[in-house]
Simulated assay, not measured.
Amino acid sequence: MPKILIVDDEPNIVTLISRYAQREGYDIVTASDGREAIDKCRSEDFDVIIMDVMMPDTDGFTACKKIKEFRDIPVIMLSARGTEFDKLFGFEVGVDDYVTKPFSPMELMARIRVVISRTTASVPVNDSRHITYGGLDIDTFGLTVTVDGERADLTAKEYALLLLLVKNKGIVLSRDRILNEVWGYDSFGVDRTVDWQIKLLRSKLGNYRDSIKTVRGVGYKFEM
């Protein structure tokens, strides 16, 4: 049974999400602020975290960044602030999805299902363990990337994005396709989501950053 951590200082929001999540068959654990969420993640593992941004003591962004330092748990962030800056900042600290309040509980459940299915999906058995281009090595079993012998500190989304590009080497992928393949949605309502994630990914690839080519007005491709 997938286990979800719901983090929000508004009891009515926690109750609402818990009710719908339990109907989906999820095991529910709750926390009222970011610090409590960090503590719970140190002692327990979760399949996904649903977390509010604005909370007392430790906000959601700070908590997400701290948790990602010791556990790679997908985080869906909730916020009444839906500006592009807020969403892009969230992606930078490791947020996997961003839902603006007020939200549809059914839509949130759909997003949870997608996140869990993508993070628990196994690598096809016919894939080779390593995809290597020069000093760039992608371990498809260990889900890690090394650049010239040093491990790159990629988030789950950055890894999925790189793997998608590499597996489609030489093929131009549109932003819409990347959104759909990596995040599981046709659109986040944020035009620059893919561009921002590409920028973050390039910054971690060292000498291979230029292997991700921009195709103006269309999208991106991987080329060596």
Rank of each mutant, 00 (worst) to 15 (best):
S117W: 02
R118M: 08
R118F: 05
T119I: 07
T119W: 04
T120V: 05
A121K: 06
A121Q: 05
S122P: 00
S122W: 00
S122I: 04
V123Q: 11
V123H: 01
V123F: 02
V125P: 01
V125I: 11
V125F: 09
V125S: 09
N126I: 11
D127C: 05
D127K: 01
S128C: 05
S128A: 09
S128N: 10
S128L: 09
R129F: 06
R129T: 10
H130L: 10
H130S: 09
H130A: 04
H130C: 04
I131H: 05
I131G: 01
I131Q: 08
I131R: 09
I131A: 10
T132A: 14
T132P: 02
T132G: 03
Y133V: 15
G134I: 13
G134Q: 13
L136N: 03
L136M: 05
L136H: 04
L136Y: 00
L136Q: 01
D137K: 14
D137Y: 03
D137Q: 10
I138D: 02
I138W: 01
T140A: 04
T140H: 00
T140Y: 01
F141K: 15
G142D: 15
G142W: 04
G142R: 14
G142S: 13
L143Y: 08
L143C: 13
L143M: 12
T144L: 06
T144Q: 02
T144A: 10
V145Q: 02
V145H: 03
V145C: 00
V145G: 02
V145A: 01
V145N: 00
T146H: 05
T146A: 03
T146K: 12
V147H: 09
V147P: 01
V147N: 06
D148G: 05
D148H: 08
G149P: 03
G149V: 06
G149M: 11
E150C: 04
E150G: 02
R151H: 02
R151G: 00
A152M: 07
D153F: 14
D153H: 15
D153V: 15
L154I: 11
T155K: 15
A156R: 15
A156T: 13
A156N: 07
K157R: 13
K157Y: 00
K157T: 13
E158L: 14
E158Q: 15
Y159R: 13
Y159V: 05
Y159P: 03
A160H: 08
A160D: 13
L161I: 08
L162C: 09
L162I: 10
L163G: 03
L163R: 05
L163T: 09
L163Y: 03
L164E: 11
L164F: 15
